[in-house]
Simulated assay, not measured.
Amino acid sequence: MSGTAALAAPPGSNARILKSKIEFALPALHTVIARVWSAPDLDRRYVDYLQTMHQMIRATVPLMAAGIARCEQLAGDPVADGVAAYLGKHIHEENGHDDWVRQDLELICPEAGELLAAMPSPAVAAAVGAQYYWLAHHHPVCLLGHIAVLEGYPGSPELPKLLAKRSGHPDRAFRTMHVHAVLDQRHRDELFDAIDALPLSARHHSMLGVSAMHTIGSLATVFEELADRRVAAHRIRTMATEGE
């Protein structure tokens, strides 16, 4: 790597560089998500969605705690110090969000406990597990690329209302989705401000980009599973009915 390539980007441009990468890949993810929300059996699809989101969100606080611990091991690294400062503030904002998802699920699914005890898919494990690996064995700044995908592009506050109407589930079962659509607008700004304040080199930018792209790809696989799970179940039911 040349000396020029290692120079930090000009102030204010770090987030722009990351966002340009994320926004190039997001349309493909949005296409897969749209398949889930446009399904005719949205009532059951939403149950599957909540099960999967709980599996991911319950890892948020432990993952950030691991990130803080790793940053402390790298004390004196200005990027790690900046990541620790951001995570130290943000971790409190995320506490208890998995309970929100659980409560949403319990409102509409008598088997909520059984669903939440199920083993997560490899796609869910890959989305979260890669971050543990990178922060432990490479650099904790990677975690900010992951968070940028999850919180940097809040959903529409109108989406929960539309899904409640289409699914037949009560509005209160969409609390987590609604609250995140509002909260993540502030979280997005705080995150990108924190990224802009970091003295990132080209190497750090590469880490952020790889982490973000991996998260988008993993989420696309997660939502493909949600879409195909319902399709497969419908086919099985149809075959069983035709065989009667």
Results as ranks from 00 to 15, higher is better:
residue 94 E to S: 03
residue 75 A to S: 11
residue 239 M to K: 13
residue 47 V to E: 03
residue 10 P to E: 09
residue 128 V to G: 03
residue 24 F to D: 13
residue 94 E to G: 10
residue 50 L to T: 06
residue 191 L to S: 04
residue 204 H to P: 04
residue 97 H to A: 05
residue 31 T to V: 06
residue 126 A to H: 15
residue 132 Y to T: 06
residue 243 G to E: 11
residue 6 A to I: 02
residue 54 H to N: 14
residue 91 I to H: 04
residue 131 Q to I: 12
residue 10 P to Q: 05
residue 190 E to H: 09
residue 157 P to F: 04
residue 101 V to Y: 12
residue 53 M to H: 13
residue 191 L to W: 13
residue 142 C to Q: 03
residue 148 A to M: 12
residue 75 A to M: 11
residue 26 L to Y: 00
residue 170 P to R: 12
residue 12 G to M: 05
residue 157 P to N: 12
residue 242 E to T: 13
residue 169 H to Y: 12
residue 178 H to N: 07
residue 110 P to M: 14
residue 207 M to D: 01
residue 90 H to E: 09
residue 21 K to R: 15
residue 143 L to H: 07
residue 37 W to M: 06
residue 76 G to M: 09
residue 201 S to H: 04
residue 87 L to K: 02
residue 22 I to H: 08
residue 24 F to T: 14
residue 239 M to R: 11
residue 2 S to Q: 11
residue 150 L to F: 03
residue 31 T to A: 15
residue 48 D to A: 07
residue 115 L to P: 01
residue 38 S to K: 13
residue 177 M to V: 10
residue 29 L to Y: 11
residue 244 E to K: 11
residue 123 A to V: 00
residue 44 R to L: 14
residue 192 F to C: 06
residue 176 T to C: 07
residue 168 G to V: 02
residue 133 Y to D: 08
residue 78 P to E: 05
residue 123 A to Q: 05
residue 13 S to N: 10
residue 165 K to Y: 08
residue 117 A to V: 02
residue 152 G to V: 11
residue 73 Q to A: 14
residue 37 W to R: 00
residue 167 S to D: 02
residue 68 I to C: 00
residue 104 D to S: 09
residue 215 T to L: 06
residue 239 M to H: 03
residue 95 N to Y: 01
